[in-house]
Nucleic acid binder design. Sequence first.
DNA 1: TTTT
DNA 2: TTTT
Lengths: 159, 159, 159, 159
Amino acid sequence: MLNRVILIGRLTRDPELRYTPAGVAVTQFTLAVDRPFTSGGSKEREADFINIVTWRQLAETCANYLRKGRLTAVEGRIQVRNYDNNEGKRVYVTEVIADNVRFLESSNSAGNREEGGSNANASYGGGSSGNRGGGSREQQDPFIDDGKPIDISDDDLPF
Amino acid sequence: MLNRVILIGRLTRDPELRYTPAGVAVTQFTLAVDRPFTSGGSKEREADFINIVTWRQLAETCANYLRKGRLTAVEGRIQVRNYDNNEGKRVYVTEVIADNVRFLESSNSAGNREEGGSNANASYGGGSSGNRGGGSREQQDPFIDDGKPIDISDDDLPF
Amino acid sequence: MLNRVILIGRLTRDPELRYTPAGVAVTQFTLAVDRPFTSGGSKEREADFINIVTWRQLAETCANYLRKGRLTAVEGRIQVRNYDNNEGKRVYVTEVIADNVRFLESSNSAGNREEGGSNANASYGGGSSGNRGGGSREQQDPFIDDGKPIDISDDDLPF
Amino acid sequence: MLNRVILIGRLTRDPELRYTPAGVAVTQFTLAVDRPFTSGGSKEREADFINIVTWRQLAETCANYLRKGRLTAVEGRIQVRNYDNNEGKRVYVTEVIADNVRFLESSNSAGNREEGGSNANASYGGGSSGNRGGGSREQQDPFIDDGKPIDISDDDLPF
DNA sequence: TTTT
DNA sequence: TTTT
């Protein structure tokens, strides 16, 4: 019925941009989100490593602007997929499907807080869109098949 | 940069549906949201009375399905408007512009959990719509590399 | 840095209450959260099945008041644990550690909207503190039921 | 029942720290939160100016670390107070009572991402507890500066 | 001006 | 009364 997640953390590595055979852009990255406490007796802070997936235009923007270590805010929903692995065992994968990503740090330490990437958000639908009484149509439909299959091996996946 | 609100409460009265001169539907209602504590010495629970505004299709759905007293979840963003009143004084108005409304109680006490109204959310545009991100096939993991290209046709994609 | 989740869905089964060897209550249940769209050509609505964990006083309240099928709102944070399974393979588990649970439906269809359970919050309860939830063991899955009591010492708990 | 807000924006001015007569710290500031669109034909981005209130330990930390212009994340709940102004007219004030504030920019442009202030949370601090924020007087606006100390007794505070 |  |  309702499923909303908001995270602020840092990328554990550069985002990975891929395309489905139909040419839909998909970007995946992991956010390290520090926990608000230290566990047990230890004083070292721990983090949760949360997998983020973005699609289409937002995927392209994330791939262009995000880099390992950058402080980033993500808004989206939790999704749980499952598949049967090569031993025939069902594996569950939990990801956050992001529809809004804020780049809280830019490449140059100072300055350009208002570069294009800082406002990336998912807005689908032909014609009008959104909540604003005004428009935000995307310029281009990334349903473009570049002919190459997605090149991912199991080892690349952090789960 | 980021502005997200989620509320659960009860309507203080029936929603009011109006139309702008251009014919855009606007519905307004107030949500009574109980506070998680009782103040001072008194034991009576207090509430915040929060004004909600919805636009377009969502406005029509809210006007049709919501009624005074109904338990309702609202997702949206805080907006602060201001105007000069008739004494020439600037007045500030804070509202939640909703883009997702869940009807947690229906007219008939029991049953119909899946009636149309229970899934109202702001998504304009004929056919495609919304805020859905992507990737929701349950049967197959698109990130498993089995050597073959991923078996998804455009028709499988939910956008 | 920031990690917040809000969900509304229905319990897939009755909650399970357990105790750590030190006597800390832990309740686990799964929330079925309908997706806001239907995938592919099919018209059947899909859902994400999200594991929820509550601790201490909130765990007891959830075990007492929640039942299979009940519409429930959950607020918390995403936690990713990992442990090595019996084949020596690292398994990752994603859960929502809830610190606020709202019972949107009570046992008797009508009436008692204000029974004690409807206000369960992690902040309350004797000597408890904060918004932190709990449970962050990296080595072992407390929900694997091997017939023995859960093998957690108080020192493992971050509160 | 449930009332949660998450904002990211910039302080419009330095925060203001005050104390109730009983010595409880209260800090107030305003967050400028850019809207995700530009209105009308104009190309200049607009913002919502949202009043934030923090109490106790969190108030002190905010007063110490936040400054005008700093990018800041705020988590809390919407509160609507009202009071009668000097013309005997009822005035409604909407604020966000924060229980979690993240300092996304530090004083020195580079570096120190882990300074103490970056982890301010209402749950911590001597003897405090919970996620409840504070301040819910209905009769009087503590932020009207009449030159006299703030007229609040400890009994008015809900914690 | 407020809901249960 | 507003930030970048």
